[in-house]
Simulated scan of single mutants.
Amino acid sequence: MTVLVRDFRPDDAEAVTRVRRAALPFEVTTPRAVLAQVASAHPARKYRLLIAEKDGEIVGTANVGIAHESGTPGLSYANPQVHPDHRGSGAGGLLLRTAEEHLAAEGAESVYAWVLDEPGFRAFAEKRGYRPTRPAHFLRLDLAGGTLPEPPAALPPGVELRTAAAYAGDPRPLFEADAEVTADEPSDIGADLDDYEAWLADTWNNPLLDHELTTVVTVDGRIAAFTAAHTDGVSRYHSGMTGTLRAYRGRGLAKLAKTDSLLRARAAGYTDAFTSNDAENGPMLAINKWFGYEICATEVRHVRALG
Rank of each mutant, 00 (worst) to 15 (best):
A105E: 15
A123G: 14
L193V: 11
I287F: 14
S70K: 02
T271F: 13
P80C: 02
P84H: 13
H102W: 12
L174N: 09
A108M: 09
Q37R: 01
M284H: 14
A62V: 04
D178C: 04
A273M: 12
G307W: 03
L50S: 03
R172T: 13
T215S: 01
Q81F: 04
R222E: 15
D184K: 00
S89A: 13
H83K: 14
E185T: 06
M284E: 09
L161E: 07
A153V: 05
D210S: 10
L148W: 05
R134I: 06
H302Q: 09
V216K: 04
T259C: 10
A136R: 14
E180W: 13
E57F: 05
D220G: 06
Q37T: 09
L50K: 06
R6Q: 11
G158C: 04
Y196H: 00
T29Y: 12
W204H: 02
T231E: 03
V219R: 12
A273Y: 15
L262Y: 15
I58T: 04
N206V: 01
A123T: 14
T72W: 08
A198Q: 09
R246M: 00
F124Y: 14
S76V: 08
R301E: 12
T275A: 12
E53W: 04
P31C: 05
G145D: 00
G129P: 14
T298N: 08
L139A: 06
L262T: 09
P152Q: 03
R87W: 03
R140I: 00
F175I: 09
R246W: 07
T271C: 08
